[in-house]
Nucleic acid binder design. Structure first.
Lengths: 348, 348
DNA sequence: CGTTTTAGTTCTACGATACTT
DNA sequence: CAAGTATCGTAGAACTAAAAC
């Protein structure tokens, strides 16, 4: 029997701690201890309580938990419309981690008509004790310094803001290194628009190119977050000026869109054009060719953000305000050595 | 003074009803009455209470409200990864409506590793008294019949499930009528894959074509939800078989992507190819040409779903299980009369 | 004068946590 | 470990006091 029995939904008589305690033949207090996986219960009774809870389809009432406890155990999450496949995997990681730690996430979307202020106000009703922001990447979060706050994915220069992000710099550099090692020189970049993450990756690209003495070969096209934003840039790469032999895209969505454009121009990937994405999100699977990409680990990012917020709430000692996860280049089939110069490609 | 004062966040002393009552010189119960806009308070005291609440930056504690009340005032919202721009506007509408009615939304994402069962379990902790599903469009929601449940956007055949959706059928038909009236006959469709919404729009397209005696001219290409899913289909329209003069896309994302592909083939929109989208979402603005599209009103859909769920919880009498909003064709610049047959287009 | 209406208060219940004994 | 109790911040029913008819 599971929690999704007839008793748990619909027809009333909600199951409470009392019911579980009675059925297991223990006190309410012990049920509380067991459900919170707190120390102070024998293995035997722990099992009996859990069995009773399972049979009754009991789930602790988070409202009561939240109200009775010192902390609300509620973490607010703001996120905005720049959501791609990657952000959803991030949400996944956040929920998984929160659940493991007995915390609850309450989401407050940011939209055109719903700003940080409004979003914060609605969260306030839950007496949230920490906030995690996924997007949009903003330089000065409204609640910075007022409450434990973490941003995931970009850098914020505020002593009261924790940062959990991937090492964009090394990720992009690894991509450039990889392509240079294959023999590429004309490596272009389609960026992600004006967001802070985009700026970080773009300047990392420029720096890496310069480090290889390829500053003259650098070329940046305007892109964006979504797939369609990559189309124009990719088109320009094909039609305007000297055509590069490789592309580093702001993210996988842009990379996938670009590969489509290249195909239309008779350019096969990777033979005539190498492509590197970023994120290793699920859209990478949509590419015609398995995509070489810079992987982030959304589950890790989510877990670290949640755990950091819990640590802050519990006033635990924290050394570094910023957690930077290593970026890992996943080499697949969308990158290869460039054709010999002069070797004319046959449009297939 | 507003709720976002120093007192309301971070450091110390959370403001409760007691504080407001003291400052306003009334009892707690009266504060409760005023905050709920319940009857039983004079205009004079009502103002004093509201003023005191505002000065203190008081917000009712939804956990306590939820726990004390007969109903939890929590509506669960499940939504999945098929989220495009349109779904975010929908979320907006939901939150706005919920807030107006003093209800709270708790979001539970559906991902690859987080199914309806898991999502429901986590919501259960909040003792939610109704559920709204935005996606993925599923034929048999797990909780159907067990709790007030509404799906937004598609049709579900279950007496315990409320449906709020746009009239896909008439929307598509209006698009076809519009194009036929302009003189088009070869009108193609790129669908949205295998979801229930896609099936509804596809068959509406086929039916409308047949109604015009154009069954022979109908052509359906496989698409999907996201922008990139439209690329292949649009490419096939250009390169395989007789080229249509108009396209009705599953949604705006597909339409925008298709317009990009057409441009690459030297086809100008609308001169050589008319394009109609669906949703009138914010991506419509990304199109090179102002997009003719079938508009849905996400705010209305959200409002109706929330209000319907509240009505169900309050056991109010309900006549129709399904609410179908009219679809409105917004004619912009991506549709025009087709070129005369035989008039050869100059590739610009 | 008695009876209903309106405005306000008092008190218990909600389902947990966190003590104390 | 058990048993009992205070507490969290609110809703809502029962109750009171005064005004309205």
């Amino acid at each position: 029997m599971t929690v999704l029995t007839e008793e748990s939904f619909g027809s009333r008589q909600r199951v409470t701690m009392d019911d579980v305690a009675r059925r297991a033949g223990v006190s309410r207090a012990l049920v509380s201890i067991v459900m919170r996986s707190a120390p102070g219960a024998s293995e035997d009774k722990r099992r009996r309580v859990l069995a009773a809870a399972d049979e009754l389809g009991y789930r602790p009432d988070v409202r009561a938990q939240s109200l009775a406890g010192q902390r609300s155990r509620v973490i607010g999450v703001m996120f905005g419309v720049t959501v791609g496949a990657f952000h959803f995997e991030l949400l996944d990681g956040l929920f998984a981690a929160a659940e493991r730690h007995g915390h609850n996430l309450v989401i407050s979307p940011l939209t055109r008509v719903r700003d940080e202020r409004t979003a914060a106000r609605s969260l306030q009703g839950f007496r949230f004790d920490a906030l995690i922001m996924l997007s949009p990447p903003t330089a000065h979060p409204l609640l910075a310094g007022r409450i434990p706050l973490a941003v995931v994915g970009w850098h914020v220069d505020h002593p009261g803001v924790d940062v959990v992000r991937v090492d964009d710099d090394r990720g992009i550099r690894a991509a450039v290194d990889h392509l240079v090692a294959l023999g590429h020189r004309d490596i272009a970049h389609i960026d992600g628009g004006d967001t802070m993450i985009s700026l970080a990756r773009r300047s990392a690209y420029l720096a890496a190119m310069e480090a290889h003495g390829l500053a003259r070969c650098a070329r940046v096209e305007r892109g964006g977050q979504a797939q369609v934003d990559g189309l124009a840039g990719a088109r320009r790469l094909c039609s305007i000026g000297p055509r590069p032999t490789a592309l580093i895209a702001y993210n996988d969505d842009i990379a996938v869109a670009a590969i489509g454009v290249f195909a239309q121009h008779g350019l096969t990937v990777p033979a005539e054009m190498s492509v590197v994405g970023f994120d290793d999100s699920s859209v990478a699977a949509l590419a015609a060719v398995p995509l070489t990409t810079v992987a982030q680990r959304p589950d890790e990012l989510g877990r670290l953000a949640v755990e950091r917020m819990i640590a802050r709430v519990e006033q635990r000692r924290i050394v570094e305000r910023e957690i930077v996860l290593p970026a890992e280049l996943r080499v697949r089939s969308s990158t290869a050595a460039p054709r010999e110069p002069g070797h004319n490609p046959l449009p297939s």
